[in-house]
Amino acid sequence: MHTDLAPLIDGRHIWLGSQQAITDDNQPTGYALLDKKLRGGWPQYGVIELQTANGIGELRLLAPFLSAVATTQQLIMFINAPSIINSQMLAFNDIEPSAAVMITTNDDSQQLWSAEQSLHSGCVSIVVLWQQQFSSCQVKRLKLAAKAGRSRLIVIRPPNQLSALPVNLTLALMPSDNGLDITIKKQQGHWPQPMFTLDMSQQWPDLVTHRTYDNVIALAKRRVS
C-alpha cells in the first residue's frame, strides 16, 4: 500500500470495499422470492423507502413485516396516509387495531417531527410515512432516531424519484397481474437488482387478474386434422 494513503485510511477518510460491514440482521418478508432477492429480508432496523403508487399492493407487501414486528407493548404509526387505514385489514393481518395510530397533518415539518419522536421513543415498532420531499439530512436524522429507538421507518413516495436518499433499502414497485414488479434500486451492502415479478397470488388469491386453477390438467396439444 502507498504510504501516503495510510493516514487517510486510518482516519477513515477513505472506505475500502472490503471494509463495508454488512450486518445481516434481517426480518423475513413472508415472500420467498423477495427474501432471496433481498438476501434475507427486510433490514431489522433503519429506513426503507418504497417508490410506489398507492393502492397497488404496497401495504400487502408490508403486511407480513408489520405483523411480525408488531408487539402488544408497542405502537404502529401511520403518518400522512392517503386515506383512513382500515382497522379490519389490520385485524386480518393479526395486528391489534388499537396499537395503530394515524397522524394526519399537512405540515411537512410536523410530519417529520412526529416521525422522529415516534422512532426515538422506543415504544413504536414501526412508522409508515407517506411523504414526497426529503433532504438527505432529514433522512439521516430519522435513521439515527430509528437506530436509537430500535425501530423501523418505511417511507412511501410516489414512483420515479430522481434523488437518491441515504436509506437502507429502496424498492420501486409497479403493478403487475398477479402481484408486483419490484426493482431493488438500492440496498445497503449489496448491488441493486433489476426488475423481477413477485407473485402474491398465494397470499392474496382474491387479488389476481389471471387466476390459475390448480384442479385443471392441461391436455397435450393435439393437431386437429
Partner: peptide
Amino acid sequence: AKLGEDNVTQLDY
C-alpha cells in the same frame, strides 16, 4: 400537544 387531538387518531375495531 404538538399536533392537536384531532390530528392524532388511535384506530379501533
